[in-house]
Design a protein around this nucleic acid. Structure first.
Lengths: 116, 116
DNA sequence: AAAGATCGTTTCGGCCCCGTATCTTTGCCG
DNA sequence: CGGCAAAGATACGGGGCCGAAACGATCTTT
């Protein structure tokens, strides 16, 4: 069940969502942070720094820093892997789930408003 | 003709588009810059600094700086208003139109890939 | 023409992100 | 054990964006 979307609708949707986020007072995540957060909440665990770095095609420090920031926001939690202590497993939080859920609702609402 | 989208589809779409942008080598615009650029290309002209600032609910320096950056990328052009020289009219460029068009195509493509 | 309002820009100090290189901890294997 | 590899974090210099305030240029009003 692909979603059918014309380019003008896609652009208008993106604009409306960006405007909603910019106008609102929500914490301002960068595109990379957003990609990481959504991957953690949509793709099946476990999530490691290395795995995320490979999936996003960025270096490991990028992931570490993004996790620092999003840990500060309580959107994710770090957890040492017991079976291999070198690994850090990234886990979801209630606050992060709420943020992601709210964001999805914003996209759905703006999509429903499209008319063209 | 609203676009029907379920939350899980909306989030997956956003993730896939963010991943496409992060992985690619395209110039990295902030959420604010994206909102400004899309507004310039989707909403009818004329576009002024003050008008954009009000529409995004941000201060004027935010707009000035974003226009500086996007002018450097050739995505927009500044143009003094002849009838009131205090105003700056923001105009579109070929490069900007190409960038916006390509971005819309990315969103459409990722939407078409959704399955859930 | 002088005073005041409007528009966009600039300045300032501060913060966060970037990429590269280096470091620490941990696991692996001879 | 000792050396090496792997995972993640940290250090460093650089650059961009931030909000608030001050600035110069241009209308508008009186």
């Amino acid at each position: 069940m692909p979603v059918i979307l014309r380019p003008s609708q896609a652009l208008r949707l993106w604009q409306q969502v960006c405007l909603s986020e910019v106008r609102g007072a929500m914490p301002d995540l960068t595109e990379r942070q957003m990609a990481i957060l959504l991957t953690i909440y949509l793709d099946p665990p476990p999530h490691t720094v290395r795995g995320l770095a490979e999936k996003l095609n960025v270096t490991k420090p990028v992931i570490t820093r993004a996790l620092d920031t999003m840990s500060g926001l309580k959107f994710v939690k770090r957890h040492r892997d017991a079976s291999d202590r070198r690994n850090v497993l990234v886990r979801r939080t209630v606050e992060g789930a709420l943020f992601v859920e709210r964001f999805g609702d914003v996209v759905v609402a703006r999509a429903a408003e499209l008319s063209l």
